[in-house]
Amino acid sequence: MSAAKTRAQSLIDENAVVVFSKSYCPYCDSSKKLLKSLNAKFTVLELDQDEEGSAIQSALAEISGQRTVPNIYIKQKHIGGNSDLQAKKDLKELLADAGAL
């Protein structure tokens, strides 16, 4: 397994909520704002500000099949992107179950 894939998988495994993001992405901002509005505890990795960002993004495509950002995981489960997160009717329950609220 590549170092980038190992790092991505570790972030997913060790955090209740992870948002793989890019700092300039409006969809990423929407996802982070939604999570903040719910007072959720979450980890963000800004791929455009990380020296391994490009490799991690490729690794995420292998892990989840999704190459775009945001790439969101809750309780080690791939949620999808911003539209998937926004559409989650049970988001509060998912976050509570993950221990992120």
Rank of each mutant, 00 (worst) to 15 (best):
D48V: 03
A3P: 04
L94S: 07
R67S: 09
Q76Y: 01
I79C: 08
A3T: 06
H78I: 00
D90E: 15
L60D: 01
K5L: 15
R67N: 07
S64H: 11
I79E: 13
C28T: 02
T6F: 14
D97T: 02
D97A: 15
A55H: 06
K41C: 11
L91S: 10
S37W: 04
L94T: 00
A98V: 06
Q49N: 13
E51K: 09
S2E: 02
E14C: 11
K88H: 11
A4C: 11
E52N: 07
A3R: 07
A40H: 10
Q9M: 13
P26N: 09
A8K: 11
I56D: 09
E93F: 02
F20S: 04
S2M: 14
A87F: 03
L34E: 13
S2H: 08
K33V: 00
I56T: 02
K92F: 07
D90P: 12
D90H: 04
S58V: 00
N39V: 01
Q76D: 13
C25V: 00
K89Y: 05
L91E: 11
N39C: 06
A87I: 05
N71Y: 09
D84M: 05
E51N: 11
Q76F: 07
G80S: 07
S21I: 09
I12V: 11
Y27K: 01
Q57K: 00
D48C: 07
R7L: 15
A3Q: 15
E51I: 00
D50V: 03
H78W: 12
V44G: 08
I74Q: 12
F20A: 03
G65P: 14
L101N: 06
S23H: 09
S64E: 12
Q86K: 06
L38C: 07
K77C: 10
A98N: 11
P26E: 07
S54C: 02
S31D: 08
A16D: 10
L60N: 01
E62H: 05
E52A: 12
Q9T: 15
I63G: 01
S2D: 15
R7P: 08
I63P: 07
K33M: 07
C25P: 10
S83P: 14
S23V: 01
E14V: 01
P70C: 07
A55G: 10
D50Y: 13
S31C: 04
Q86R: 09
R7H: 12
D84E: 15
C25L: 06
E93K: 08
A61S: 15
A87M: 14
S23C: 11
A40V: 02
Q49L: 13
Y27F: 15
I74V: 11
G81C: 08
A98K: 12
S58F: 01
Q9C: 09
E62V: 05
K32N: 06
I56Y: 03
K92R: 04
A96S: 14
P26K: 03
G80L: 14
I74F: 12
A4M: 14
V19G: 09
N15I: 03
K5Y: 05
A8C: 08
T6S: 15
Y24W: 11
N82V: 00
F20R: 03
R7M: 14
A40K: 05
K75D: 13
L85Q: 04
